[in-house]
Design a protein around this nucleic acid. Structure first.
Lengths: 360, 360
DNA sequence: TTGTACGCGTTATCAG
DNA sequence: CTGATAACGCGTACAA
């Protein structure tokens, strides 16, 4: 931690109920004036600074005064003004979270997991949507960072080098997630797409399928998943009959078309690994339409465990990444750093899980 | 607007690039000290307060000084410290948004729409998840409100009377969405579930279906949709053959079971209105499984236009609520209020749209 | 362990 | 239209 020679960030911990101002009673005529530290101090019979310490550095205050302060806080419903704190200390209790798309279920879960960990410790997650746009990302970074966040979370990786170095110099804990960039800004929580592909191959082998195929996009994560799949196929001695590459995937129809193409041009395919669930569900629907039984005639596996993977008959076998867990771990790592328990950058992998359903 | 006799809230408008501190150059040795208003004032040859006014109340400053300030701002990359502003003015540029579940696509879209409108005007959306829990809602309200937000948005309606009156007395614009409570806290943007049901009935009539049925949950929004459906059925002279009520709806299987029950106990049903898309998709899958052609043998319509409604063959006819538009309108109404352009509470309805697909 | 003095960066107020 | 002054509420630094 920079700028804090005193031994790490003391996270705000409010055990009391946080309430702004006292309850409105007939006596104060509907006025809802925030309680200030001075009043708490008066009631507790101590100085304002002792109140501050009692709340944020309980160890530095005698038990006796600490209790008095606690009582006074409860009576008044005092909650410190976060802006005044941030102004004075140069750091707020806000954690800035950047997502490329708020509406994405996966990113949503990650944010949710992170909030679960951070909120009980008094931090507020401030979410900014970068909309898969460098310009937006840059501008969001600038305006959220004006709030002097205690830490910064990205669901994803910061791509623009300009932003990476800006964040590096900011002197605030930064955590990236999802992927594994060669040179992380600071901390990292991700999962291995390659591992996921490998797991599917192993599963196919364990189920006794021999002739397997792959359908996926021709770039990005899909390639990593394919790499792992190939590796697993080789180790298990399976036969990779075909690799079908799609330029874009925009709907179920892409998966449907791909499966048809695959089945029409290759004989006897036991199992197909689709690099994501959307493709897989399309393939699944098409297999049903062709009257194929799953997994008897053909087995299909996806990647991502999307919403409907469990719902769509006969249930799609898929790789689940625990997005909420990614968020939770990210939150925990940030907390550890903010409390000065860890130092330096660290990187972690969240395990994937193969969810077996009716399709294999 | 409370506490601002001077004529409404002046929204922060930063046309310049918001940058914190000047670029790091070898000369300043990696130090990234925030630029303060004083320095901008010195460079522009005016007083700090004039800089402040030039940025936030351009009308009150002479053109000449305004330009000088603008230049100085560009040179330094000045951006005001939001905490200092909030501390002094008692109001931040933060808009608190409460959602019951971040991961929900619909709420996500609403938040997205609202952010689209508010962010260009210099506001930051701070999202809090209430997790469908009163306790969480109360605690989130208290801690987000400590940030003295400029306004408050709810995707949904505040149910707890204690929180409603708290928000009412807060003196900050509040906007609720989605439903129409009898006694809104302040402003409101919603859509009419009843209208949606009516639209489906009219569509069924227009398509020539006569004998229709309803499947839905036995409470909440489902009932409103049923009410509208009944009304439309009556007006159009259709025959409502059956109303099937479900206690809970947790997966596609509920819809599948419901359709079976319906078809097994009633003869010749032309069309079924399912009160939400999950039920409808279950029914759709089951109809396919039974070998029924859609819409020839049976027509099915849903409500909500969820992700897969367009994808699932033959395409689900459904009622689309434009969630992003709800958010956008909410943002616009908040802005108008913050700028003092409107006064008093107002309430608005966002139109629904029937999306016709293969299932009808 | 406790308290005093001061400053964080900005804007409200009021006088010019 | 412009500027001087004070204050927003809290925490750091230092002294007791």
């Amino acid at each position: 931690m920079i700028g804090d020679p005193g031994g790490g960030f003391v996270s705000p911990t409010f055990d009391q109920v946080i309430r702004i101002g006292r309850p409105v009673t007939p006596e104060n005529g509907g006025e809802r004036k925030p309680v200030r530290i001075e009043e708490v101090a008066r009631i507790a019979g101590v100085s304002p600074i002792t109140v501050s310490r009692a709340l944020h550095q309980p160890g530095r205050v005698s038990e006796e005064k600490r209790l008095k302060v606690q009582q006074a806080v409860e009576v008044t419903g005092y909650a410190s003004n976060p802006h005044a704190r941030a102004l004075r200390s140069g750091r707020s209790n806000i954690v800035a979270a950047f997502v490329s798309n708020i509406v994405s279920q996966q990113f949503g879960l990650a944010v949710q997991g992170c909030a679960e960990v951070l909120e009980p410790r008094g931090f507020q997650l401030m979410i900014g949507q970068t909309s898969y746009s460098y310009a937006r990302e840059t501008s969001m970074i600038q305006s959220l960072l004006a709030l002097r966040p205690a830490a910064v979370l990205f669901t994803g990786v910061v791509e623009l080098e300009e932003n990476r170095s800006f964040l590096r110099e900011l002197g605030v804990p930064v955590i990236e997630t999802w992927a594994f960039p060669p040179d992380p800004i600071d901390m990292l929580v991700g999962f291995s797409n390659t591992d996921g592909g490998r797991m599917v191959a192993q599963h196919f082998a364990a189920q006794g399928y021999r002739r397997v195929a792959f359908i996926g996009r021709s770039g990005g994560r899909g390639l990593l998943r394919l790499a792992g799949f190939r590796d697993g196929v080789r180790s298990a001695g399976l036969k990779l009959v075909a690799e079908l590459s799609l330029d874009t995937v925009s709907g179920l129809s892409d998966g449907q078309r791909a499966l048809n193409q695959l089945l029409d041009s290759h004989e006897k395919i036991d199992a197909v690994f689709c690099a994501n669930d959307l493709i897989a569900m399309g393939a699944l629907l098409e297999a049903s339409r062709r009257g194929l039984n799953m997994p008897g005639d053909i087995a299909i596996a996806g990647f991502g465990d999307s919403d409907l993977a469990a719902e769509i008959p006969p249930g799609l076998t898929t790789i689940r990444m625990d997005c909420r867990q990614i968020g939770r771990r990210a939150g925990e790592m940030l907390l550890a750093r903010l409390n000065g328990e860890t130092d330096g950058s660290s990187s972690e992998t969240v395990a994937l899980e193969l969810v077996k359903r009716g399709s294999t």
